[in-house]
Design a protein around this nucleic acid. Structure first.
Lengths: 221, 221
DNA sequence: GGCCAGGTCGGGGTGCTCCCCGATACCGCT
DNA sequence: AGCGGTATCGGGGAGCACCCCGACCTGGCC
């Protein structure tokens, strides 16, 4: 759906604990990209990447001493222009999610063809995000089930609160005491009590502890 | 990076409030896919989709009366086999995130070419996930910055708590009172007090309100 | 046996939460 | 002028949260 001109030959570092597999990848894509380094352990990978600063790192998710996320955590700050493409036998959702959360910009399984892998490397090098279609589904599912992102859901529950009450609600949710809220809003403790009491009644809650949870669930902080 | 055989002609419903734009899309991709219906409002879209059950819905993110997320929320349950591809002028992160969270399986901007759009529709119809590369970056960034997914975060703070204290901590974070915790764990209120006091001291918190927020931030619920 | 960590209770106290009353004042609407 | 909603305060009180003491028991470790 987009056109990608090969912007020169990407430089690649290959991280995998199986020498046999590395040889296979070299044979398959060595003509199209520059494989400038290899590593078989986390420590090796960190040193190699920090030194060579390749445009792309092909990163196995499962390594003996920590795996792909460990490598990413260690070198992402040192090599900001390096993009990481996870390459794994696993199509388990937790593997995909963990390595993406660590900062990889793509994830493909080892069943990929040489031509497709070359294309994926080029696209990642250009800053694109590359996923095996099946795996992209995992990420989206996890994403949808989560609570991230600004989804401006104007809670109807909040509309029944007056502006002042909403203000008090926010401070209550942040764990402020009545006294602190009063100092913050330049009103007396008793006024805060009144507002708090109204908030609890309108939201049908019985204690500020429940209110804290109520607010946390709705990300009102 | 993957090959997609066109599995017949996908049926498509087109949702956009600009008739001119719908005509343009029809002209561009009408030969390759079956555009079986159109809609210009949320209500129209919901009725049309529920009735026709197309394989793909091309969905504008911005509609007068609610937008793409409203359509998705209304019909996703009724048409489980229908896939949604968001089609928008906007490349704002919040638009992308909100529509994806609502269940869309792809997002492309209106700058897309007819051929690319046809390909995107086919891929979405087959269950793939399709993104303009730039936009995929937004999703991944939001994803990475969030706290979803099974990333085993053995908090070092929790290690200094005894098993019993951790148990009490969870119940405290859920908003249980000391009395309720005592009943839950078959111990007296005073014992709960002791544990709670220890928890607060070890975590350097001064009130259970702060503790609730502390736990909410760490998703300990 | 001595020692210590963890778990279990209690007494007593201070401060906070939350609710019940009531009061005043401003503002907009009829 | 009257009425309702909102915001502002106060008194008083029941219950809870939190802390400081001390106490007992159990199990593991030297």
């Amino acid at each position: 759906m987009t056109s990608h001109e090969p912007a020169g030959r990407p430089t690649v570092v290959l991280v995998d604990d199986h020498a046999m597999f590395r040889a296979g990848v070299r044979a398959e894509i060595g003509q199209s990209v520059d494989i400038v380094g290899e590593a078989s352990t986390v420590a090796e990978a960190v040193a190699t990447i920090a030194h060579l600063k390749p445009s792309v790192v092909l990163l196995d998710v499962h390594l003996p001493d920590g795996g792909g996320p460990a490598v990413l955590a260690a070198v992402r700050a040192q090599a900001p222009d390096t993009h990481f493409l996870a390459l794994s036998v696993s199509d388990a959702a937790e593997d995909v999610i963990s390595v993406i959360r660590s900062g990889a910009r793509g994830y493909v399984t080892k069943t990929i063809s040489g031509a497709d892998l070359t294309d994926a490397i080029r696209r990642v090098a250009e800053g694109d995000v590359v996923f095996s279609p099946r795996l992209a589904g995992f990420v989206l599912d996890a994403f949808r089930d989560s609570d991230i992102g600004p989804v401006p859901s104007a809670d109807p529950e909040l509309d029944q609160l007056t502006p002042r009450e909403q203000e008090v609600l926010r401070l209550l949710a942040r764990g402020y005491s009545y006294r602190e809220i009063g100092a913050e809003l330049f009103i007396s403790i008793k006024t805060v009590e009144t507002h708090a009491s109204n908030v609890l009644r309108k939201l049908q809650l019985s204690s500020r502890h429940q209110l804290t949870r109520w607010a946390a669930d709705r990300r009102i902080v």
